[in-house]
Amino acid sequence: MIASLRNGILASAAILAMGGLAMGSLAMGVLAGHAAETAPAGRLAPPQSFAGIADTTARSAALFTELGKVLTNPRCVNCHPASDRPRQGDTSRPHQPPVTRGADGMGSDSLRCPTCHQDRNYDPGRVPGHPGWHLAPREMAWEGKSLAEICTQIKDPDRNGQRKLDDLIEHIGKDGLVGWAWAPGAGRTPAPGTQAEAGALVAAWVESGAACPAP
């Protein structure tokens, strides 16, 4: 017999299970697109579905708003943080262990990004990977910003890595690290749609004048 109850008491009678505690979940603040047809969650509406918007500027802004589903997705925002510390996971919690961008956006002297983030995802440890893993520069921070602010920022060469608008089509539509957002590995929800669909939205947005949504 086990004779080691801490104060020698036997469980007595009575009943019941404890009420559930509500857990707050972190709202991601994804802006609803005003596309003619709203794409289901996890999908992107194609550029042609915005053809019904006659006003070019409004259509352009709507295209960007649809693209915003990607830009404000945790897969993207987590490494475009407002501070020097990236975020992590679908809830965009602060990155653990507590790494910072360091001098080159690749971590501090003792905690370098590629030390853990290897050239591909490692699902047994649920750690994402890509050969170019790094933090977006400070001036490209998106976290906490409205889509209108992100739009203005993404067009500003001083805050988009000196990219022309056409470069953005390439960057979002074809860059390997950006593409990781659609294949993020176990335990993480991919960005909506596909990288090609996101690229098509950027192209249509640029073509339609690269207008920004109203603030």
């Binding site: 008491i9 036997l10 469980a11 007595s12 009678a13 009575a14 009943i15 019941l16 299970a17 176990a186």
Partner: peptide, 24 residues
Amino acid sequence: VRDGTFVRFGEETGPIEAENYGAF
């Protein structure tokens, strides 16, 4: 098996109620 879907579940019963472990 880590994602939990390996374990199959059917009808919803709600949690099992049981007596308390001790009241003093």
